[in-house]
Design a protein around this nucleic acid. Structure first.
Lengths: 126, 126
DNA sequence: AAAAACGTGTGATATTTTCTAACATGATTG
DNA sequence: CAATCATGTTAGAAAATATCACACGTTTTT
């Protein structure tokens, strides 16, 4: 699935194509960029070049706008989404620190203790 | 798989993008079109617009040329390939005519007859 | 060998596309 | 009502692309 993501993020489309694909005006597309909702690349001649991901996002933006959400709201949505993605990435990167390991082990011992002693008559099932 | 094919045949790329993607010069790309090896679409302003399939084909053409096949040869290859695709399509469209059915049945009967009589000592195995 | 055909590079010129920047505008919103 | 939002429109400049013609080194034909 890595190759596909690469393809989808390749900046190969000029604004004219994106206009047709999204039914947005050049003005709208540039404005959304100004609002940091998308960040198309630039080629050597300063022309904006868009990826399929950009097109997807523009279509999303259209939907959000149709739902009455304004630019600021959409930007906020993407910021949150971005944060969550980063967190997930970080979690994957270093799955367990030493502290995590110690904490987890300690928890297990605590549970062990609880299971073998201290079982009163109303000890919760399982 | 129909949606994917649609995407791959969408003419969305300008020649500049295709040049980068294929490492071919504009001259080469236009010449290959002149030789009917590709047929990019044109937008309202007469600019060539290419699909991902076009890019694939251009890369193929590059390979063929590197292998020493000339334009005419490549054109022939594609013509044959095209013919086979059409035939396959036709076969799928009307899988069996009445005549086919009768012929196939007759073949089976013939084979039956051969199996049950006429088996000499050297009858081929299977 | 001379001539012709191939595949490509290059240059000139015209047209189209895209860029930025500015001003305009109807619809909210404070 | 004044300000902000989201978009349209226009102007002028730069970039990308189109066609056409000529050049040129390599095969292929005659």
């Amino acid at each position: 699935m890595k190759e596909k993501e690469l393809r989808r993020s390749l900046a190969v489309l000029p604004i004219g194509t994106v206009m047709k694909l999204t039914n947005l005006s050049a003005r709208q597309i540039r404005y959304y960029e100004e609002q940091d909702l998308i960040t198309p690349e630039r080629n050597a001649g300063n022309r904006r070049m868009f990826s399929l991901n950009d097109v997807d996002r523009l279509l999303e933006i259209k939907d959000y706008l149709a739902d009455g959400i304004n630019m600021a709201g959409i930007k906020e949505l993407y910021a949150l989404q971005q944060q969550r993605a980063e967190q997930k990435q970080a979690d994957l990167a270093k799955p367990l620190t030493d502290r995590d390991v110690r904490r987890i082990l300690q928890d297990e011992f605590l549970n062990l203790g609880r299971l073998q002693s201290d079982k009163g008559p109303n000890y919760p099932a399982h």
